[in-house]
């Protein structure tokens, strides 16, 4: 297992409350990593700290260099609840924003950017909706479009915050096979996930949080009954 991201002495604090405190964590390359834990355990905070979206202390490095100076190598899918879906843009506009950066000036994007955006839309199988206003999409379609936006950046690391929340089972399966495809192409995928039952099957590498690192490693070992008790408090019995 090759290391991609190295996190050292990370601390995320909101006022007096410590959301997350991690001494040391390594995220593997070209694997699908799941971040799990109870509500409020710091999962989103971990992602946001990696993206330098919240103030934090400690270091997050990608193969030796600070991640915050290498933002081109990371792509992000925020939680879909946070959006104003009435915003006057269509699917294509939204995905095209994945090509924007600090050097995007004026109104028009280049032909190359537009082509890449179309490719990404096709990857998530939304091509026939590309001119649809985003408010007219279903929950699963919205999630797919957000993922397409992240894919349009063509970054090697993909961070997703609860991508499977509130979507139908068939979309979830299709997205998972898309992630497997990306993994085969060498991309690294890290996602915050809410469902322990599916975690065992979805992820090559699991990080179990409870405002601190409870365990990390392969799915079976990390999600042992003992670890889950430490994280969630109370005993766990998977009925299946």
């Amino acid at each position: 297992m090759k290391a991609l991201i190295e996190i050292e002495k990370l601390k995320v604090q909101y006022g007096k409350q410590v959301a997350l405190e991690l001494k040391h964590l390594v995220i593997p390359q070209a694997q699908i990593t799941g971040i799990v834990g109870p509500n409020g355990s710091g999962k989103s905070s971990l992602l946001k700290a990696m993206l330098d979206l919240v103030p934090h202390s400690g270091s997050v490095k990608i193969q030796g260099t600070d991640l915050k100076s290498q933002k081109e190598r990371v792509s992000y899918v925020p939680q879909k609840e946070a959006f104003d879906w009435n915003f006057p843009i269509n699917v294509f506009d939204l995905v095209l924003m994945g090509r924007y950066g600090p050097r995007s000036f004026f109104v028009r994007s280049s032909g190359k950017d537009k082509a890449i955006a179309l490719e990404a839309i096709e990857l998530v199988d939304m091509l026939k909706y590309k001119d649809r206003q985003i408010g007219e999409l279903s929950g699963g379609q919205q999630q797919r479009v957000l993922i397409a936006r992240a894919l349009a950046k063509q970054a090697e690391l993909l961070l997703l915050d609860e991508p499977f929340a509130g979507i139908d089972a068939s979309t979830e399966t299709k997205l998972l096979s898309l992630f497997e495809q990306l993994k085969d192409q060498g991309k690294s995928i890290v996602m915050v996930h809410h469902d322990l039952l599916t975690a065992k099957n979805y992820f090559d590498f699991v990080v179990l949080l409870n405002n601190s690192l409870v365990a990390d490693g392969n799915a079976t070992e990390t999600l042992s009954a003992q670890n889950l008790e430490r994280a969630y408090g109370g005993s766990f019995n998977f009925t299946k």
Partner: peptide, 23 residues
């Protein structure tokens, strides 16, 4: 107009725009 695309991205989704390197 010069910063139109960055304005659009920031207003629509601040965290994503920030992750794209937009100030």
């Amino acid at each position: 107009l010069i910063f139109y695309r960055q304005l659009k991205a920031t207003i629509f989704n601040r965290s994503f725009a920030s992750s794209q390197g937009i100030s």
